[in-house]
Design a protein around this nucleic acid. Structure first.
Lengths: 343, 343
DNA sequence: GCCCATAGTATTATCGTTAATACGCTACAT
DNA sequence: ATGTAGCGTATTAACGATAATACTATGGGC
């Protein structure tokens, strides 16, 4: 905290009015005559006074701050979420307390406790695991406003999120419809309990009466471009035929694409690739990437409205609601050489 | 703020001890016998007590929070900075207050005031403009601990940062040394007053006795891949010969690369490209990108140490110091077809 | 001239915590 | 027995603001 900043008391001493009069004047009370207010305002200005929000928070019993806990910022989509959250919150006079869990459950729990201790009015959480949510549910049960950014309709916790299952379904169905009956899956999230994309992948197969070879489902051990590159190499080593790849995010997909490039595999002729998230680099890749897109800004706004609604709720929190936004498939060259021919 | 949370007073009433005894017991004072402490600890646990940091901050006159203001999070390097800052601060028991200025000076000033009002113990700022720093200097002059993440040795404000001028110099000197005497510059930062990279570009030319054609210096009007694509098109339209491009960040460079790809220009044979920042996508591009790399984690750690040092300083702040970390050139195929031949 | 409404300002309590100090009791030395 | 050291706990006053209430002039009505 900056050393020696002006307080109401200092302004009071300077002007000769009481602390309360100064407080009322600065807050624009009608009980203070214009002349008095002018003197006080001017003195406050001169002394560079800014209300101490710590003291205000104590007496008002609200901090006007919201905690944001993400897994990490390596994924450009989470980055976009972070920025959108901060923007929307600050528009509404709230400050963002920020933390990352690095996919470590204990760290997630720790950051939640930190924010609770700081009396954040509410929290937005992108949980490490979409299944282990007991610590978050406990929070909600104690009437703390929490909104998850990935949702499980059965979790009994509010959530506003993109429907990953539907997105994965669309991606894989698109590949199967384009004649690919052997689609590989590059996705490591299932190990953390986040099986939505895998479920979409399986459901798309089931719908078409196909059963994917389990050897085509690979954990890339990371979410980076390098991991995608490695995963592709590993898949090829398994000697199981596949003509298409669905990667759980665009970084992985771009890594796969790079692998193909380097190893003389044509995309999409030899291997079709579909990513997820529609990051900017996807569109400008050697072979523009087919991917799953959703409106980050819209989801974020809804999430913020939800958390502010919970914060505003008097007494008991309302019943938890899960809002899932349907993502859309963006078809580009990497999945459709017909598209190459015509486009 | 969550409704009705346990306070020291509640524990005091439950156990029959006074508030102060409870406070001392929870903080592990030696004056409290083990038996008393055990009772209090157990009751606190049962009531799910967590100290109210708002009240603590008020009485301790420090919030153990640091404000982080970035321009935006679209640049993966700033993202990495944000994550590293949060990690390092939380290791040291500090919370990160986060905001973005979107390169709008008034918003930057506003967020600074917000954090000051919240009594953040210090701030780390990536300013929109490296020249208009009066509002930040004023803060420092009032003894507020601030550390900039881009530095001007003459600004009389502490800074820990990468030496952008030196980085740009290395990039352009590398191109010139490889036989490119007409190097284009794609960089829009100079309009905001951030001329470091441009200066490096000019200095590299001057050093070699060259004067760049001003028509080869282009403002891409943005920092995205799309902007880089557009800039390349614009440059070619100017009908001034150039055989190499230095782009102010890797997104711009990847956009340029994509343009070349699409328009039959070979990289590096027809056009050499050098980027800046060494984001992961640079390495895995069609033509791996030569770029400027620096150790984000190291710079971040130094910056945090500096701000905590300022926070810890009793009385007047010490003289401002600017620490610049030298970045390094990472040569890949995009700038050197000799490298292609051998590598 | 007196009462009362009202405008303008001050007083006091409060938020949840910490810090300094005070108090009461036991035990011990003298 | 008596002063005193020390231990365990309580009391009180901050921190910087807000909110409810309490004063104190002043002016108007009769």
């Amino acid at each position: 905290m900056a050393k020696s900043v002006a307080r109401l008391k200092d302004i009071a001493e300077q002007t000769g009015f009481s602390v309360n009069t100064v407080s009322l004047a600065l807050r624009g009370s009608a009980r203070i005559p214009d002349e008095t207010r002018a003197v006080i305002l001017q003195t406050a200005e001169r002394m560079n006074y800014l209300p101490n929000q710590v003291a205000q928070s104590l007496v008002r019993r609200e901090t006007r701050s919201v905690g944001l806990i993400l897994t990490d910022l390596k994924n450009p989509v989470l980055t976009a979420v972070a920025q959108a959250v901060e923007l929307e919150l600050s528009k509404r006079g709230y400050t963002t307390l920020f933390a990352t869990s690095n996919n470590i459950l204990s760290r997630e729990a720790e950051m939640i406790e930190t924010f609770r201790s700081r009396r954040a009015d509410g929290m937005l959480i992108f949980p490490c695991s979409h299944r282990q949510l007991d610590h978050i549910r406990a929070l909600r049960n104690r009437n703390y406003p929490v909104v998850l950014l990935v949702g499980d309709p059965d979790a009994r916790i509010d959530a506003v999120c993109m429907d990953e299952r539907a997105g994965a379904f669309k991606a894989v169905a698109h590949l199967i419809n384009n004649g690919h009956s052997n689609v590989a899956l590059i996705d490591g999230a299932a190990l953390l309990g986040n099986t939505e994309k895998q479920e979409g992948y399986l459901r798309a197969h089931a719908m078409m009466g196909l059963t994917p070879d389990p050897r085509l489902m690979l954990d890339p051990k990371g979410a980076s471009v390098a991991a995608g590159f490695w995963a592709m190499d590993e898949l090829r080593g398994r000697k199981v035929h596949f003509s298409a790849v669905f990667a759980a995010n665009d970084s992985l997909a771009l890594g796969s694409l790079r692998y193909c490039c380097k190893n003389g595999l044509r995309v999409p002729e030899d291997i079709a690739i579909v990513g997820f998230d529609n990051i900017e680099f996807a569109e400008y890749a050697v072979t523009p990437l087919t991917t799953i897109n959703y409106d980050v800004m819209r989801v974020t706004k809804l999430a913020i409205e939800r958390v502010l609604e919970l914060i505003g709720a008097a007494g008991e929190l309302p019943e938890a609601r899960v809002t899932q936004v349907e993502p859309e498939l963006v078809v580009r060259e990497s999945s459709s050489w017909r598209y190459v021919a015509t486009g």
